[in-house]
Each structure stands twice: as structure tokens, then as C-alpha cells.
Write a protein that binds this DNA or RNA. Structure first.
Lengths: 353, 353
DNA sequence: GCGGCAAATGACAGCGCCGTCAAAGGCTTT
DNA sequence: AAAGCCTTTGACGGCGCTGTCATTTGCCGC
């Protein structure tokens, strides 16, 4: 029995290049150890019912051959469910999104699940393509910071059993769970504080109109202004999606005939732009930015602080905790992460009027 | 033959919830369309040799059943090679790493390859575990910002055919390609400029000693100081891994009997801490930070700017361009990304001495 | 001394898909 | 009309692994 003249596994592959290059399979390990595939499988997976002696034989063979289990084949044979969840954001270099990703990644630790990341660049079509792609790859779930305005098309994906969780921006036309920042409350607090400091012309620098978060923030801004009987139409600019755009729009606003005495920057990108614009403006301009950022304290910038890391964690936890039942019943729950107005000076400059 | 009393596939799964929940297989689609599996496969994969008529039948069936190809099974059958490459960094919330990730992600676009991300938290053991894990998942390649000091153990992974590319920090004890910043040159330029502005006591705030990047920067710092005949031993502090640590160490340094008149912050974390420390210091302290950051212009901080996005892109491109030959022959090439000293004021404050 | 049980192992049939090859038909060529 | 070629289709055998079930062996109790 032990003298079978078969080629030894080591030399069985003539086409091999210089270095090994061939990853052995379980079958080869089993053969080398003189056991059945199933037994080898048991050893590799640490299952019961294997003698210590057999285990050693298999481990020895596996070690010598440099065996590495093939996770794909294993997953296929078991019953699937991939080991990754996907996160699609607008742009990873935006620290807000990076913080969300950090939160998700932290929460995933030790769960044998990994994070696959992609950014849409706030491009509708790319977002949809990415979702399709991840669905195809059988992501366990898709976490989505969406740019798209209507999500009804995603229902087919939910039906395939892949939960979609909305981060930062709630779904429209679709029932799905979401985790968002308290946009209204945060904005209102900021605007009301500026008003309480005597400002009557308060500029608003916002992102793309179509982005839902900004619709909400803008709504809260106009509401607060109206409630105080103030005009806002000549002080609001939007579609400032990056610091540069925000800067030039803010400059224009400040250079107008009747310039605002305070600015509200509706997200961290806008805040950066406004800071640049305000920096070398002749008279001091009050400024409050939505989203906190690292050097805000050094710069003395008052911000509507929120916790994107917590947002990411909460969303990831949701996905991890929810059994596979979620796919059948997306409750459409919304979790709101609170905001805090962090006063550091720039938002407490009284009106010069 | 056709009357086998087997359960119909549709109802074969009693445990199923309310909504479908069952993802049909190619076999079911083929049966529904009345063709063989292979033909259905051809249609799904857009291969040649299928009549328009047949194609339509299959597509119709696939559509009605809600077919979604199983990427895992497909990959297994073909011959593997996963569709993802992995990036392991220290901490995604560090904008430097986030920028690297952005670069990688950008370069991957349109290549049908995705980015799987994980952070080691600068923890040796976790880093190794992640590498093992990704290797097991058959990542096409592993991009690594390593915390570990010795990489000789990773050779087994290379031999498995999974290329490991080192980002920001070069490998030691292992032959592998790497992409790094010009740490020496950047540091030297900064220190020399400070010296040229009359500073003789120049503080150094650095990260963990074990991190290779910082060994290099520290080496360049000491070399530049020695070359100018200056003492550095009482001005160098290290192991400041986050802004808070950097801040308190910088404060200590500035509060000492013979405080430095200039500081060199060896990375962006340290720069943030130094900025805080310098902000409310009684006399002005010159400051140059390694790594550029977004608000450096607003704050007027002179930095050794580099381009982490380009670094990420270059690494990703390398992986994409290199055929599968790389696994047999890791050249051990090192690509150095240059730095630029961006003067914004803080580094051009002359010594008060 | 025999039933009965748990431990230990292996044969076998797929998971869902794709590559190979053979077969069938239609067309052109000589 | 025979030969040759291309298109279209399907049967079949895996990819590397795991679940199920059967088989073998050792050991207990009565």
C-alpha cells in the first residue's frame, strides 16, 4: 500500500516555473498524509473526531507542501455568504467619509468580515454601477452614502437578499434603514446663535442642491431666517462642492454691495473654503461650519460637531447584529446622530452693524 | 422522465421567508429557457456563438427569475484570482493614509478590481493577522503600510503567489517592491532651512521609533544638525504617535530651561500637536511639518509637502500592470515620491536668539 | 459474550459555474 | 456530390472544498 509508484506530489507539475508557484490543494495534502480528503478537511477546520496522531500527520503534510485553504471554494461548498460588506462613499479623501469608513472598519474587527470600499465621486451612474457590482459579488451588505436622488431602483437588490443601509443620507422611494446626522437641529442651532449675536445678514454656503443632506440643512437655514424675519435669498449660495468653489463663492458674497456679516458653511468642504475667504477679508466675519474638523480648535472655528465615526460604527453594528431576516423586512428605521455646537470663537463674533 | 415527482425548484425551500429569498442558479435559468447550462452561460457572459433568438430567450428567463450570477462559483470554475486587492494601513482616519487609499481606489477604477481595506492600528500582530487573512482570501495583491519591523516572515505569502507591495515604508528582510516618500531629502531641506534662518536649537517631534519612516527622518534630522555642528540630543522627542502625545511632548520641550526656537514635526499627526502647543506659547516658534495638510495655507504652516495620492496610484498601477510574473520575481524596486518644501510663513520665522 | 454507543475515518455527491470537446447543421468550395 | 469550414448547441468533467451518511473500530455495561 505504501509503495504506490505514483509521482510524488512535489514533482507532479512539470509546467511549474522556477520557484514553486503551485498552491497545493487539500486533496494533495490528504494524499501526502495518507488520509482521505474529508479527514484532512477536518484537521484544517479544527473539527472534532480526529486522533492527535492523524492531526499531526495532516498538519505536517500541509506545512511541508505549503497548503493554503481556498476560501472561495470553501465558501462555495458551505453555502456562500461572502465575508465582506461594502461601503460606497462620495470621496474618501473627504475626512468626513474617511471617518465613516474608520467607524465601519473598527466595528467589523474580529467579526471575520472585511470592508470593501469604493467611491462614487458623487456620480450617479457610477454609484449605481458600484451597487450592482457589489451585489454581484454577494456582499453581505451595502453601506451607501448616496448621491442618487431616487432609490426605488434598488429594490431589486434588496429582494436579492442584500441589505442596503443608507449612511448620512436617507433613502427616497425605498424602504431601508438609515443613519443620519441631525442636520436640521444642528443647522438651526448655528443660525440661531448667529442671530443672537446680532447678525441679520447671514450667508449660507452649501453643497450640490441635489444632495439630500444639503436640502435639509438649507431648509433649516431658511426656516430659521424666516422665523427671525430675516431675508436669506441674497445670502445663500449653493453647489459649492469643494473648497475651491466654496472659497470663490464666499468671496463673491463678501464682495457684494450688502455683504453678510456672518457665514454658515454647510459642510466641512465649504468650511475650508470659507476659512480661506474670510482669512484675508478686511473686516471680521463670523463663521460657523457644519462638521467638526481636526484643526478647528487651533483655528478657533465654531462648528456644528457630529460624530461620523459613531455613525459608521452604528451602521456596521446594525448589519452585524441583524440576522439574515433583515432582507425580508427592512424596517426603514432612521437613526439620528446628534450634533453639538462647539463654540471656539469664530461663531461668537458679534455683528459689526 | 419529465414526471419525476420531485419538488419543483420554486417550492423546494420551505424555510424561505415571505418574499422570494431564493436566488436562482444558472441551471434554473437554463431550464426555464429550455437550453443547456452552457448556452445560458454563454449568454450571461456575452460569449460568441449564440443566436439572437436564443440569447433573448435566456435573457428573458434570467430577467423573470431574477438571476444573479454567483461571482464566487464563477471565479472558482475559471481558475481563481480574486477581484480585489487589499490595502492595510495604520489608521484610516489619518488623512495621509486616507489619501493613499484614495489614490489606490482611483487607479483601480474601471479595472473590475476592488479595494478591500483594513487598518492595523499600528499593531504588529493585527497586521500579520490581516495579511494572513487577505492571503487566504486570495487577494490579487496586498498593499501594505507596515508597522512590523521585520518582514522576513512574509516570504511564504509571496511564494503563494500573492505579491506584497510596501507603501510609505520599505520592507526589511524581504525582497519586495516599495513606494516611499523622500524622507531624507524632505527632512534635510526643512532642517537646513531652519538653520539658515538662524535657528540653532531645533526641536524634533517624531512618531514611534520602530516605524521605519521615522527612523529615516530622524536620521536625516540628526545628520543635518551634526553637519551644522548643532546639538540635537536635548531637542528630540519621539514616540508621539498622535496629536495629543505630540502636543504634550512639544509643550514640555518648549517649557524646558533651554527651549528650542524652532520645531520640526515629523508627520502630520505631530504637526497638529505642535500647532496646538505653539499656538499659545509666549514667544513665536518656527515650525515646519512633514506632510502637507488641507488647512496649512490658512494656518500659514510651512510643510514638507508630498503626494500620498500619487503614491497610492503608483502602487496600484504597478499591481495592475505587472502580469502574474511579479510573483516569481519581485524585483525589490523602490520608487521614491519627491517632496517639496512649501513655505507659508511658519517655517520662515527667524530665530529670536 | 453480545448488544449498544461513541469515536474515527472515508466514499460520495454536490455548491454554481466554466472549459473542452463532440455533434449537428448550414454554407461554400472544387 | 463530396469535402471542408464555420456556427451553434449541449454533454460532461471538473475547480477545491464541505455535508451527509455509511463503515469500521474500540470499549462500555450487564
Amino acid at each position: 500500500m505504501t509503495v504506490a509508484p505514483m509521482a510524488t506530489p512535489t514533482e507532479a507539475r512539470p509546467p511549474g516555473g522556477p520557484a514553486g508557484g503551485h498552491v497545493p490543494t487539500l486533496a494533495e495534502v490528504a494524499r501526502a498524509a495518507g488520509v482521505s480528503m474529508k479527514t484532512a478537511s477536518r484537521v484544517i477546520n479544527g473539527e472534532r473526531y480526529v486522533t492527535a496522531e492523524t492531526r499531526d500527520k495532516v498538519l505536517k503534510a500541509a506545512g511541508e507542501l505549503g497548503f493554503v485553504p481556498n476560501a472561495l471554494a470553501s465558501a462555495l461548498a458551505r453555502g456562500m455568504t461572502s465575508h465582506s460588506i461594502s461601503l460606497i462613499t462620495g470621496d474618501l479623501s473627504n475626512p468626513f467619509y474617511a471617518a465613516i469608513a474608520t467607524g465601519v472598519e473598527n466595528e467589523l474587527r474580529g467579526h471575520d468580515i472585511h470592508l470593501t470600499l469604493a467611491s462614487s465621486g458623487e456620480d450617479d451612474r457610477r454609484e449605481v454601477a458600484l451597487i450592482e457590482e457589489f451585489a454581484l459579488r454577494r456582499s453581505r451588505a451595502i453601506l451607501l452614502v448616496s448621491t442618487v436622488e431616487d432609490h426605488s431602483g434598488l429594490e431589486t437588490i434588496q429582494r436579492r437578499g442584500i441589505p442596503i443601509v443608507f449612511l448620512d443620507r436617507a433613502p427616497s422611494g425605498l424602504v431601508a434603514d438609515s443613519f443620519v446626522i441631525d442636520n436640521s437641529g444642528g443647522t438651526r442651532a448655528a443660525i440661531e446663535q448667529l442671530i443672537s449675536f446680532g447678525h441679520r445678514r447671514i450667508g449660507y454656503i452649501g453643497d450640490y442642491k441635489r444632495i439630500q443632506t444639503h436640502q435639509t440643512r438649507f431648509g433649516a437655514y431658511t426656516a430659521a431666517m424666516l422665523a427671525a424675519g430675516l431675508d436669506w435669498e441674497s445670502f445663500a449660495v449653493r453647489d459649492a462642492h469643494n473648497p475651491d468653489a466654496a472659497e470663490s463663492l464666499a468671496r463673491e458674497l463678501l464682495a457684494s454691495a450688502d455683504p453678510p456679516t456672518a457665514l454658515f458653511a454647510a459642510n466641512n468642504r465649504a468650511t475650508v473654503g470659507c476659512l480661506r475667504a474670510v482669512k484675508d477679508h478686511r473686516c471680521p466675519v463670523a463663521l460657523i461650519g457644519f462638521d467638526d474638523f481636526e484643526l478647528a480648535d487651533v483655528l478657533g472655528v465654531t462648528t456644528v460637531a457630529n460624530d461620523p465615526v459613531a455613525l459608521g460604527r452604528a451602521a456596521a453594528r446594525k448589519v452585524l447584529d441583524t440576522p439574515v431576516a433583515a432582507l425580508a423586512a427592512p424596517t426603514g428605521s432612521t437613526t439620528v446622530i446628534p450634533t453639538t455646537l462647539v463654540r471656539r470663537g469664530s461663531g461668537e463674533i458679534p455683528s459689526a452693524d
